[in-house]
Simulated assay, not measured.
Amino acid sequence: MSYRNFPMVPRVVFGRGSFNQLEEIISPKRLNVNAPFIFLVDDVFKGNAWLTSRIPLAYDDKVLYISANEEPKTSQVDSLVEEIILTSRQGTSGIIGIGGGTILDLAKAVSIMINNEGEAKNYQGWDLVKNPAVYHVGVPTLSGTGAEVSRTCVLTGPEKKLGINSDYTPFDQVILDPELTKDVPKNQWFYTGMDCYIHCVESLTGTFLNAFSRSYGDMALQLCKEIFLGDNLSVNDAQDKLMMASWHGGMSIAYSQVGVAHAMSYGLSYLLGTKHGIGNCIVFDQLGEFYPEGVALFKDMVKKHDIYIPTGICAHLDDSEFDKMINISLGLVPLWENALGKNWQKIITREKLKSLYKKM
């Protein structure tokens, strides 16, 4: 029996205001004065002095503001890497991602591709990366995706939506400062929080479940219930707990896997550009036959917070478009195997997937 020997984030700081320690954390990692740190920052913070004035720029360091309106693409990674390499005279000291899952995934992918030849699309898959990434730091400003802790960075390529899954992907350092999530709009807070909740349900009901993933999944699920169904949490407490739930949810799937909702939402995202959090919610809403308890609780959460879950987004698709989504989804073999076991193909046929997508 061979057990997975997977990497964890070696260093993490947690606490309100811990973002202020970024300078003291990264300064010793500077290679030389001509090797800049590159800060990839969600462009919602452009002009937000409360956050941007605390980014510790020195020498040739640069801030690149990036829109998170679309899911990260392999082509976007390639152009960022080219820009960074052309402007860094003596190497790059590190990549610091400040934002939600999209920005964190881009930061992980860029840090890998600076040290690996070719195009990002050639590394979509499992364990294809040859050389270690440059030093990279994750600073989440949104809680739920688990991107701060995972060994993947999910990218939409020309042919598929699939992560660069490798031992070199995880951040070298993460700063968990719940204060940074204070201005997240309510709908986005919910959709991204549900990404974490769905991680837990898929991990805890999957065939890959073990004591390691269960311990993290149980903790994250309990926190999600307190946050989304509880009544007496202060704002600060809710922010702290959701950041911890995101971390634990990410750890839970690190040693197991996600399932049906993620496999199907990748199809939506690839074809329609649906953002990951809301895509998971749209799919999960229709998965009562696979996750009866989890979906029932999800519907309670939606109702309690008066959240709109879009419907009818597949109503106008033709057969070739359904086929594209189904192909992307069926390509995610480990997710289906975790959800339904070795014989998953007997349960999930193309017709079955099409009928589920038609409900969305």
Rank of each mutant, 00 (worst) to 15 (best):
V33Q: 15
M8A: 11
P185N: 10
E289K: 08
K73W: 00
R4P: 00
L64I: 15
E179D: 14
K324N: 05
W336S: 12
A254T: 14
N122A: 10
G217W: 09
K161S: 07
N338H: 06
K342N: 15
V77R: 01
M264Y: 13
K160F: 07
F14N: 04
T141F: 03
R214F: 11
L22Y: 09
K62E: 15
G294H: 08
T87S: 15
W126D: 12
H199C: 06
G100V: 03
P56S: 08
L204G: 05
D78C: 05
I164L: 05
T145F: 06
R30E: 14
C196S: 14
S75L: 00
G312I: 12
I328A: 06
Y135M: 14
Q173A: 10
M244V: 00
I227K: 03
M325N: 10
D306K: 14
H316S: 13
Y197L: 04
G97E: 02
L297Y: 04
T87A: 15
S67H: 04
E71R: 06
T152K: 02
Y357I: 13
L204T: 08
C314Y: 07
S166Y: 09
G206E: 10
S53C: 01
Q257C: 15
Q345P: 02
S265V: 12
Q173M: 14
T92V: 15
Q21H: 06
D323T: 11
V77H: 03
K225C: 02
S88L: 11
G157N: 00
P56D: 05
E351P: 11
L128P: 07
F14H: 08
E70R: 13
S269W: 07
E117T: 06
G230L: 09
I313W: 13
F6T: 11
I95T: 13
L155K: 02
R30H: 11
Y65A: 11
N338R: 01
N115K: 09
D231K: 15
S265Y: 08
L223Y: 12
V260P: 08
N48M: 02
G100W: 07
E82R: 13
I309M: 12
D177I: 02
V184P: 06
H136C: 13
F190Y: 06
Y135F: 15
L233H: 11
F37W: 14
K121V: 12
K275I: 03
S143D: 04
G138M: 11
D195T: 05
S203D: 10
S143I: 00
I348A: 07
E71G: 06
K275V: 03
E23Q: 07
P185A: 09
P170M: 12
V295P: 03
V333G: 10
S329T: 13
G331P: 08
G99I: 10
V13M: 05
F290W: 06
G273N: 09
V258E: 15
Y270V: 08
D127H: 07
D42M: 12
C281I: 10
K304M: 01
G267I: 11
G146Q: 09
